[in-house]
Design a binder for these strands. Structure first.
Lengths: 369, 369
DNA sequence: ATCCTGTGATTAATCCTTTAAGCAAGGTCG
DNA sequence: CGACCTTGCTTAAAGGATTAATCACAGGAT
């Protein structure tokens, strides 16, 4: 391992690798890592004493002087505990696993990871990640790898919220579901989709809209919770908001899929109908994006001719002109909460619904008369 | 830190949690994990023998019968090695750290992680991740946490490619830079931005374009490699392609930042000039997105009135109409390569440039006459 | 009968921490 | 004065794997 000659010892760095102050012990060996025993020897105490000091055990009775000597020695030698030895002994690793189906294909994954990471960091834990890509074989492999390493807990995450079956082996470990539910009675974290549906519709109603359309893959909605929990819940919230005012959906425009092109097709067909709704609720931002395009093609102005609202808060929502008003998936908060639940031994089973804030931008206006 | 010949993946790894067949040993204690000693006892052999069998050591001379007994015992008891104990002894953890500045804010991060994950998995390693958010304090913390855990290596990643200073402590560990370079002579992985610049310009030239504009934060380009390496390199490639045909850039439109709104402003100003270029190279997809909007506002059709090319291959590139032709950042491949380099003991320092494939969609046409 | 060699195993040391148990000296209490 | 507690430490035993060193035995050569 070659080291450049311009090595400068950073001030904050206790000593790591700086052999300057280290005593040579006989042979001139390749830098052995500093162990607790080294620290103890340096401080003129037993390893037990050193361990007590460094772990700040209050029940241990040690002189203030001894305490200082140990601390000084550790500092000087640049001691860092060997995590493997420690875990072996105490049977904890301060490591948690985040196993998800997909991390890369959705742009939201990052938010969950970041939230999880931040809590993990605050609680002195680290995060191991693995991806199953929905493949049972890979999943088995990932779970194996994690359990071998005796992680203290597992966050089992789905990138699209849905109901899933938790592998048996995870049930023996502390597990929290992220963006998913199951029948196993585990703590779970989900976005408050139904409330968001209600809020989105309410925002429209509040502006005076009465002819409201929904654009999405309706066929699957309220049917297959294993594919997407979100769609059904959003829909239910929307219906409830309308019902509270004695209204019903004016139109449900069914799309084949959830992509921009589907939104384009759907919106085009909506605009070709006899009476155009004054507002359209798109079931996600990609559809909304396509809807924007279709509106432009048809010479309709947003929000003057037609209002649009949506769900997710994809980065493009901000780029669109006008900005897209949308209920944000609170991914970061969800990731955070999942790890908190995992680390909280007393957390009870059951689902936590994380609010989806409505990001108000310019796509909702008053209905054209 | 030399370690004997690389261990080979144990083949016994099947058993899973089939505790069903586990024998109770005396007390009815809370299920103790099965250890190697248990397996050995079950097979009527020493732990040494069991270890040899399970690790498939060829130099060990064991009878075929003993081998089978160990394997059977491991299988039956559902043995899985204790990673902590193993790491403690062999001084390897089969764990690699991915430390990045940001994982969540860019939608590309996922690709890198996924690539890293996939080769880590193939090589029987797991991935620890940490995020510094550019904060030196958090960075120190993250590096500490990783080194405590004696990771076998660190992938130090930047989410926007640039030149950075590697913390001293990392230089004592095996480190590979991902999407970054440094002056430390470490192996590094970067996208082949200059080639991409060349390819993008060449694609335009090939269609007959001669009046070509560039849209981007030109001020920073070729100046501050710490902010963005990409911009300067892309620019150089573009210039070279033009020079090869004896041409120069028709216009350089400077934007204030890299966002969609900047692209919109820049494109608008471009279109207001006296002689409009026949093609515009946007320095990234967000700018291109804004440029699309501006073109639409100005009543210019893409690609009939004006062609647009770009860099990155953001998901929106596909959603736009027409699809945006753009040079893709090969994030997944980069992540993959970084881990490969990390795990390849013999990998030499120096930068690996990963090709950026040009995704041809519909935004390049022939120049209007 | 003795020495040597190859085979098929075992014993014991080691990796580094944590922690239960014990010990020596000095002070307190009855 | 002896029993007993505190204080401030130390010793030694885990914890579960890998591995250097050793051993018992059978068979062949001398």
């Amino acid at each position: 391992m070659d080291v450049p000659e311009d090595r400068i010892k950073p001030a904050y760095d206790g000593a790591a690798g700086s052999a300057t102050s280290r005593e040579y012990e006989g042979e001139h060996m390749a830098q052995r890592r500093v162990t607790l025993a080294d620290v103890a020897r340096h401080a003129g105490l037993s390893t037990t004493a050193a361990s007590w000091v460094l772990n700040e055990r209050e029940d241990a009775r040690l002189s203030e002087d001894a305490r200082r000597r140990v601390l000084a020695a550790a500092q000087e030698l640049g001691y860092r505990p060997n995590a493997a030895a420690r875990s072996l002994r105490i049977r904890k690793t301060a490591t948690i696993a985040l196993i998800s189906d997909t991390v890369a294909t959705t742009r939201f994954a990052g938010g969950m990871i970041r939230g999880a990471l931040s809590v993990a960091r605050d609680r002195e834990h680290v995060l191991l990640i693995a991806e199953t890509q929905g493949d049972p074989e890979l999943e088995r492999h990932a779970i194996d790898a994690m359990l071998h390493r005796q992680v203290d807990g597992v966050v089992y995450a789905a990138m699209y919220s849905r109901r899933l079956t938790v592998p048996q082996r995870l049930l023996d470990t502390r597990t929290v579901l992220l963006n998913a539910t199951s029948a196993h009675g585990l703590p779970a974290v989900l976005p408050a989709e139904e409330d968001a549906g209600y809020a989105v519709a309410a925002a429209l109603l509040g502006q005076g809209h009465r002819r409201i359309a929904v654009l999405g893959r309706i066929e699957s909605i309220e049917r297959s919770p294993r594919r997407s929990l979100a769609a059904g819940l959003r829909m239910r919230g929307i219906r409830r908001a309308l019902a509270d005012r004695g209204l019903r959906l004016a139109v449900s425009e069914h799309t084949r899929d959830w992509e921009a092109r589907d939104g384009h097709a759907g919106m085009t067909s909506l605009l070709e109908r006899g009476s155009i709704p004054s507002a359209v609720i798109c079931m996600n931002d990609r559809l909304a994006f396509g809807a924007y395009q279709a509106a432009a093609d048809a010479g309709k102005a947003i929000p003057d001719d037609i209002s649009i609202v949506s769900f997710d808060d994809d980065p493009i929502a901000e780029w669109l002109r006008p900005g897209l008003t949308t209920a944000a998936l609170p991914h970061e908060e969800m990731g955070r909460l999942a790890v908190e639940l995992l680390l909280d031994e007393t957390a009870e089973p059951g689902t936590r619904w994380v609010p989806m804030p409505l990001r108000e931008r310019g796509s909702i206006g008053q209905p054209a008369t």
